[in-house]
């Protein structure tokens, strides 16, 4: 689905489609997962940039650039994460791995 078609569907349905995930919202989703003890994602990460595709099957796939908060070298990592709408925000489904 192209971005323009997705936007048109959003306008017709009145959904909050314009709110695609961003680095802060993905970071918030990640921190919620970390707080719940989910070990699916590496700990201590800071999302610096995110670029998301239009949603498909209720999920966004986003390319993210992130680093480890405790890494003095500020090494960058890149991954593709899956996020889905949950409540008023987003839930992190997969991704955010350094390895």
């Amino acid at each position: 689905m192209t971005s323009s078609i997705a936007m048109a569907i959003c306008a017709l349905t009145g959904l909050l489609c314009g709110l695609s995930p961003s680095a802060p919202t993905i970071q918030a989703a990640y921190e919620r997962e970390a707080a719940s003890g989910n070990s699916q994602h590496d700990p201590g990460l800071q999302v610096m940039e995110a670029s998301c595709e239009p949603p498909s099957n209720g999920q966004f796939l986003c390319q993210v650039m992130f680093l480890s908060k405790d890494d003095p070298s500020q090494r960058l990592y890149f991954d593709v994460v899956a996020v889905a709408r949950a409540g008023g925000g987003f839930a992190l489904k997969s991704g955010l791995c350094k390895r």
């Binding site: 489904k93 997969s94 390895r99």
Partner: peptide, 25 residues
């Protein structure tokens, strides 16, 4: 360990393992 994907082929699906490197498009 970096992996470059061609967007025209689709977006990589996140895997359930940590066995990959940096993924860029």
């Amino acid at each position: 360990f970096v992996q470059v994907y061609n967007s025209a082929n689709g977006t990589p699906i996140p895997q359930t393992t940590h066995q990959h490197g940096s993924i860029v498009k």
